[in-house]
């Protein structure tokens, strides 16, 4: 999305009556909620240095899990941003077939728990592919084995794109009808109007719910621990079962997730401020 340059200072014409002009954005000061992020990180450091056994050991043990969780989340989210746009435009399509397919997708996917969907992609989907390979006698399909990380990303993306479709749809619908009419009346086609007029405005509107989806996805990425992905949650479980320190382990895991989610929330707020539009 194109970044909006801050408007340059406006020379006020005193003979004209209009609303006061603000040339500075409100809230340029530092977001105070960064303090909460700092407090959580501080707690982690404090625990790891004062009680290294087990807190420091937990940190060392699960550190690669943090990377896996983040990777699964970020890759899925990028797919979700595209998939949601496609789904959202489909939901708004005047073509009954496209509209129907998009609506069916959203309704069905929203109605099935994410965990069940992950099980389907990891356990059922490979079986179906293998069965198909046998029927069609294609050895490559018969020997198909699911890649845990791949299936986890596919499952999360497929699931979250449905929610994101609704976010995009609501965002696009929130833009006044006159905007599309003005764009079309200038001779721009549907795609051009969407790209240059509607979406840049809609994206600003949907930033808060999109940020929400990201944080939600980050937390739900813990579900992939049940399909053999060594994410933060799974590493935590492994540490706990080998050391029998449930309180310390899950406290530390919770603090680590909190760090990631609170940090993400601050980033979203920061982007919101950067792209705020004078209305």
């Amino acid at each position: 999305m194109e970044k909006q340059e801050p408007p340059p200072p406006i020379v006020l014409d005193p003979t004209l009556v209009h609303e006061p002009v603000t040339t500075t954005r409100p809230n340029q000061r530092i977001d105070p909620w960064w303090a909460l992020v700092a407090a959580i990180v501080g707690t982690i450091i404090f625990l790891a240095t004062t009680i290294p056994d087990p807190y420091r050991r937990i940190l060392v043990f699960v550190q690669d899990g943090i990377g896996v969780s983040l990777m699964v989340t970020v890759v899925s989210f990028v797919i979700v941003l595209v998939g949601g746009l496609v789904g959202g435009l489909g939901r708004l399509s005047k073509n009954w077939l496209i509209h129907g397919i998009a609506t069916l997708y959203v309704e069905i996917i929203r109605g099935i728990p994410a965990l069940v969907q992950l099980f389907f992609w990891y356990f059922s989907f490979p079986s179906i592919v293998q069965g198909l390979g046998q029927v069609l006698n294609i050895p490559a399909l018969q020997n198909y084995l699911a890649n845990p990380v791949g299936m986890a990303i596919l499952g999360l993306s497929f699931c979250y794109s449905a929610y994101m479709s609704e976010v995009y749809r609501a965002g696009i619908q929130s833009i006044a009808k006159g905007q599309m009419e003005a764009a079309r009346s200038l001779g721009m086609n549907y795609v051009q109007s969407m790209r240059y007029v509607i979406l840049p405005q809609a994206v600003r509107v949907i930033l808060p719910p999109v940020g929400n989806e990201f944080i939600s996805l980050l937390k739900d990425s813990s579900l992939v621990s049940v399909v053999a992905v060594a994410d933060l949650t799974r590493r935590g479980r492994e540490f706990m079962s080998s050391t029998f320190t449930p309180v310390e382990t899950w406290t530390m895991i919770a603090l680590l997730y909190l760090t990631l989610t609170l940090f993400s929330a601050r980033i979203v707020t920061w982007i919101e401020r950067k792209t705020r539009m004078e209305r």
Partner: peptide, 17 residues
């Protein structure tokens, strides 16, 4: 046709962004 026909609306419909 729309490229040849300009339109001005009651509510201006400028692009606010």
């Amino acid at each position: 046709v729309r490229t040849e026909v300009g339109m001005v609306f009651q509510s201006f419909n400028l692009f606010p962004h």
